[in-house]
Simulated assay, not measured.
Amino acid sequence: MAPLSAAKPAEHRSSLLDRFLMQGGIVITFLIVAVVATALVEPRFLNRLNLINVMRNFALLLIPSLAQMLVMTAGGFDLSVGAVVAISSVVTAAVMLVGSGYFPDMEIAIILLSLVAAIGVGALVGLTNAGLVASLSLSPFMVTLAMMSVLMGIALYFTQGIPIYGVAQSFITGVGRGQFLGLPIVLHVALVVLIGCIVMQRFTALGRHIYAVGSDLRSARLSGVATGRTLAIAYVLAGMLAALTGFLMTSRLGSGQSTIGGTLALETIAAAVIGGVSLRGGVGRAEHVALAALFLAVIANAMNLVQVDSKYQTLVLGAVLIVALAIDRLLLRKRQA
């Protein structure tokens, strides 16, 4: 029999390791390994211009990943995030194109109008998703998959697959390419969204209700939580954040495009799962999802620097998601043990 004095430190180390893993240790480890390995293999990674590019890509992945996190924490899925990004990009460019023809001297007002229009479309899509899921008790997976198909069809029909130009130049230079304090404007926007999500999760009744609905819908209802309203808010917020992403992507691309966001559903689910969001709902932290999104942005940048074919990049993303799902299963077993 092992001495108690030897058993206790071993149990203590195991407990510390478990706590580290449960509190985002996996994604932190992944991120550190990815950054160090990329810097060693490709010195250009640490070039300032490349790091700025990584930060922009990170920001444009972080916002929809937070949207996905909100819905998954509430016990659902949103496969339509990429399609919302695409259609909001089209709406943004179309409003700017038409508005500049009527009011050529009111660029700022037109930019703000295009933002309101894009966010409105995202909110409408989120409300529709929530209505079908909550009111009719339909599968979130199937509802948002169908919504993705509908939105992509509308966007492609409207544009015929051709980018919509006419985006305000001040929007491109000020937002898409602009910097503040040496960091991209889009990154500042993403960080504000991240802080908002953290505050909501930790300090508001809505955050607690989302966790409760995702953990056990029936118990949450019996506890007095307005489950339908909570789901609706989660889906509407997700739609609005996806639309904001489309608005920001338009500033970077300089045009509205119906073909962007094709892989965002997979990427955002990967970021959420790697960041510790449970596929069963009720578990998820915004800061961990942010670290996971940064990890994926670093991996994508590394593959671009070493000129990995885009087909293989998709393969790597799928493999990373499988590993994340396996880790999610192992952590669930530890929680239940």
Score class of each variant (00 low, 15 high):
G275Q: 10
G275S: 14
G275R: 09
G276C: 08
G276Y: 01
G276D: 10
G276K: 07
G276S: 10
V277N: 09
V277T: 15
V277D: 12
S278F: 08
L279P: 07
R280I: 14
G281W: 14
G281H: 11
G284F: 08
G284W: 11
R285V: 14
R285W: 06
R285E: 15
A286G: 07
A286Q: 06
E287P: 01
E287Q: 13
H288W: 04
H288Y: 05
V289A: 11
V289R: 08
V289S: 09
V289Y: 06
A290D: 02
A290Q: 02
L291C: 07
L291W: 10
L291T: 05
A292Y: 03
A292P: 08
A292D: 05
A292G: 09
L294C: 04
L294N: 03
F295A: 06
F295Y: 11
L296P: 12
L296Y: 09
L296T: 13
A297P: 06
A297S: 14
A297T: 05
A297E: 01
A297R: 01
A297Y: 00
V298A: 05
V298H: 04
V298F: 02
V298M: 03
I299K: 02
I299N: 07
A300Q: 14
A300V: 06
A300R: 10
N301K: 00
N301W: 00
N301T: 09
A302P: 07
M303R: 11
M303S: 04
M303F: 09
N304A: 06
N304I: 02
N304H: 07
N304Q: 11
N304W: 00
L305H: 09
V306N: 01
V306A: 02
Q307T: 11
Q307F: 05
V308A: 03
V308P: 00
D309A: 01
D309C: 00
S310N: 06
S310C: 00
S310G: 00
K311M: 08
K311S: 08
K311C: 00
Y312K: 01
Y312F: 12
Q313D: 00
Q313N: 00
